[in-house]
Amino acid sequence: MSDTNTDWPSSLDDSELDELDTYLRAHAQDGHLLLDGVHGLLSALTVGPVQVLPDEWLPEVLHDPFVDEEEGNRVLALLAKLNDSISAELDVDAYEPILGEVDTEAGPALSAAGWCEGFSRGIDLRASLWEKRLADDASLMETLGPVMALAVDEGILSAEAEFEKLTDEEYDDCLAQLPAVLAAVSQYWAEHPATEAELDALHRATETRDEPQQPPRQRSGHWVH
C-alpha cells in the first residue's frame, strides 16, 4: 500500500485483521465464514445491485451472542471498518482480496475457496436480482468469469458442463483479475441499475425467503492479506 493511502480512516492494519481473524476462528463452527469468506461476502455486497444493511449481513458472519459487551463493540467496529475499506480500496484501485492459505505437497499456497464461498453468499442475499441479470445479460456473466472459474475449481459452484481443473497459472491469473472484476461489476450495476419490476420481485422474494442452508464444506486455511 502506498504512503498516499495510509491515512484511510476505513483501512484495517495487520493487527486489526489478526484480531478479527482470531475472533472469527474462535467462534467458527462447520460452515461458518472465516475472515477470507467475510471479505468475499462484503465484497459482493459492495459491488452489488442494491444496498444490504448490516442487520441483514451480520447474521451471516456472527452466530453467537457476545458474552462481553466491550468485545462485541470491538468486533462490530472492525467488521464495519472492513466493510468500508472495500469501497475505499476499489475507488483508488488498491483492492486486494483476503485469501486463505492451504498446505500442498509443494508447500503453502493461496486459496480462493473461502473468498468465493463468501462472495457466493453475498450474491444469495440478493439472488433474484443477480440470477435474472445473469440469465438475461451475457456480459455480466462474462465479467464474472474469473470469479466463476475459481468458484467452480474450488467446488463452491457446480459446472453445467465438464470442467477441467485450472492450472496453477490459470488459477493465479484469475486471482490477479479479481480487483478488476469487482470494479467492472460495480460499474455494471451503476450503469444498469435494478428496474422497478426487479425491485418488486426482490421485495417479494425477501419476504418469503427461507433460512439459508449451511454450505456443505468448511473454510480452511489462514487469512493472507
Rank of each mutant, 00 (worst) to 15 (best):
K81W: 10
E142I: 09
M1G: 14
G107F: 14
L199C: 01
H192R: 10
D173K: 13
D84R: 13
A135I: 07
P54G: 10
T206M: 06
D210V: 09
P179C: 03
P146Y: 05
A190P: 09
S111R: 01
D36G: 15
D124P: 00
L78P: 08
V92Y: 05
L157N: 06
F163Y: 15
D3I: 14
W130T: 04
V224T: 12
D93W: 01
P146H: 09
A88N: 07
Y95C: 02
F163R: 14
G221Y: 02
H203E: 15
L20F: 06
Q218D: 14
A138Y: 06
A205N: 05
V38T: 04
E196V: 05
W189E: 10
P108G: 04
G114Q: 00
A194T: 08
A127F: 15
A106Q: 13
D30S: 12
E142T: 15
A151G: 09
D21I: 00
Q218F: 03
P59Q: 06
G31F: 09
A138C: 07
H32I: 00
S11M: 11
L34G: 00
L17C: 11
A159Q: 09
W189Y: 13
P146F: 04
Y23N: 02
A184V: 04
L41S: 00
V50N: 07
L166D: 05
S158Y: 11
H32G: 00
L24W: 01
E142W: 06
I86T: 06
G118D: 04
W115I: 03
S10W: 11
P216H: 13
P179V: 04
L182M: 12
L62F: 08
K165R: 11
E19D: 12
R204F: 09
W189Q: 11
L53S: 15
N73L: 12
E196H: 08
D30I: 01
R219D: 08
